[in-house]
Design a binder for these strands. Structure first.
Length: 426
RNA sequence: GGAGGGGUGGCCGAGCGGACGAAGGCGCGGCGCUGGAAACGCCGUGUGCCCGUUUUUCGGGCACCGAGGGUUCGAAUCCCUCCCCCUCCGCCA
């Protein structure tokens, strides 16, 4: 949520910056500006009337206790109350409309973010490793997975429909190995491992920005009013909502493994094969809560922490900085990490690391008390560290051998009982 | 799912129709006492919004005692609905 006072004071600048994400948001800013102005006028009237009512009420009570009755005063009071309730009704509607509009405005991009329309305008920051050269025709991971008997897409569809998969034997074991490997790495780097609920209340999703705008992307348990989480960012970031943390407690680093559930509305036909785009996938997530002064430094470190996973697995990747048009709703600045995928002959997103500044913190009232006693909003950051399914796909494709077997990255072998090669199994 | 108990400031806890943003205690901060410290004494110590002034400051107003509604001139206090927590019983991984 944007700071209303910023919109009031720097109206022109906010309009301009929000426009770099898409022109459609400018009119929302205009609407907020107008509603806020009107709301404050009404609020002023309401408060003046209420102060008057409080004062007269005390007078009336005093008389009453002295056994006196003042009919004129009583009439005046009911007159004030009548005006007041009409104004209050109006104020409530305005406040609600203002809030709802504000909730649909995305975060302001950081001034350093390249201005652009879509992913084509993203900027490559750095590259690591070399894409493998095959002297045979490399297979896509879904073919390898089925050949090896570790991925079963048919069974996934049988159970749950399209965009679901069953992992079998070593496939299932690899998921478990990757989760453990990543959590071990991150906890070594100072992240506190958490295990969190996968179903959350709507206000939790409002906190991180998935609601109200992206309801259609979520799975909902209607009966209970709960939603399946689309990422562990949601429960992790909300852990301290409605709290005032001590400055000394910051920064807080969390990591958690969770499954992620996404309806993928509007992506029909995209990445229909393989592990790239599923309704349910696994992910190890990184979340940081920091002070505003440190948050950009922390973002750089967060990306490095996520990169470490790929470096240890020896998978080639690059880091790109998202342009304004490609930025997620809550993010001020985002780095994507893209891993090399031979079957696509290009890099594909495997992690997204964002600084949301105070955008989420304001939505969830997540604050900290400074040393001199001021309450300020925290900055929140999150990043994948990493998406398990896509990591598995990248391993299969990059480590495949001519006979269809796949060698196991060295870093992962301890998690698979020393296994060096994945071969077809029944 | 059934029966009972309860939600008040950072915490404990009083208040059960007006002078209550809320006693008292603990904690925390400052000052005093001390060679230093403990103990003790004094002072201070919630959050949000609006208006004015203003860089920080300060002054005024409004709201907040789980949430929402109602009664009343006036509600933390009375009534209704909902949520949450605790105890016991049932069911259950």
């Amino acid at each position: 949520m944007l700071d209303l006072r910023l919109i009031r004071k720097n109206y022109g600048e906010v309009r301009q910056r929000i426009a770099t994400r898409g022109e459609e948001y400018v009119k929302l800013v205009d609407e907020v500006y107008r509603l806020d102005k009107e709301k404050r006028e009404i609020q002023k009237e309401v408060e003046i009337l209420r102060a008057l009512l409080n004062k007269k009420s005390r007078e009336y009570g005093k008389l009453k206790r002295e056994g006196k009755e003042d009919e004129n005063l009583k009439r005046e009071l009911s007159q004030i109350k009548e005006n007041l309730s009409r104004l209050e009704e109006k104020l409530k509607l305005l406040e609600e409309e203002l809030y709802q509009t504000l909730l649909r405005i995305p975060n302001l991009p950081h001034p350093t973010v390249p201005v652009g329309r879509d992913e084509n305008d993203n900027v490559e920051v750095r590259k690591w490793g070399e894409p493998p050269k095959f002297n045979f025709n490399p297979k896509p991971h879904w073919e390898l997975g089925e050949y090896l008997g570790i991925l079963d897409f048919e069974k996934g569809t049988k159970l749950s429909g399209s965009r679901f998969v069953v992992k079998r034997g070593l496939g299932a074991r690899l998921v478990r190995a990757l989760i453990n490997f990543m959590l071990d790495l991150h906890t070594k780097n100072g992240y506190l491992e958490m295990y969190v609920p996968h179903l959350v209340k709507p206000e939790i999703l409002i906190g991180t920005g998935q609601l109200p705008k992206f309801e259609e992307d979520l799975f909902k348990c209607e009966r209970d009013g709960l939603y399946l989480i689309p990422t562990a960012e949601v429960p992790l970031t909300n852990l301290h909502r409605d709290e005032i943390l001590k400055e000394e407690e910051l920064p807080i680093y969390y990591t958690a493994y969770t499954p992620c559930y996404r309806r993928e509305a509007g992506s029909y036909g995209r990445d229909i094969k393989g592990l790239i785009r599923l309704h349910q996938f696994d992910k190890v997530e990184l979340v940081k809560i920091t002070t505003p002064e440190r948050s950009y430094e922390e973002l750089e470190k967060l990306v490095r922490d996520a990169e470490k996973v790929l470096q240890e697995l020896e998978l080639p990747y690059r880091v790109v900085e998202l342009c304004t048009g490609d930025l997620g709703f809550s993010a001020s600045k985002t780095y994507d990490i893209e891993v090399w995928m031979p079957s696509y002959n290009r890099y594909r997103e495997i992690s997204s690391c964002s600084n949301c500044e105070d955008f989420q913190a304001r939505r969830m009232k997540l604050r900290y008390k400074t040393k001199n006693g001021k309450n300020l909003y925290c900055h929140t950051l999150n990043g994948s560290g990493l998406a398990i399914g896509r990591t598995l796909a990248a391993i299969l494709e990059n480590y495949q051998q001519e006979d269809g077997s796949v060698s196991v990255p060295k870093a992962l072998r301890p998690y698979l009982g020393g296994l060096e090669v994945i071969e077809p199994h029944g």
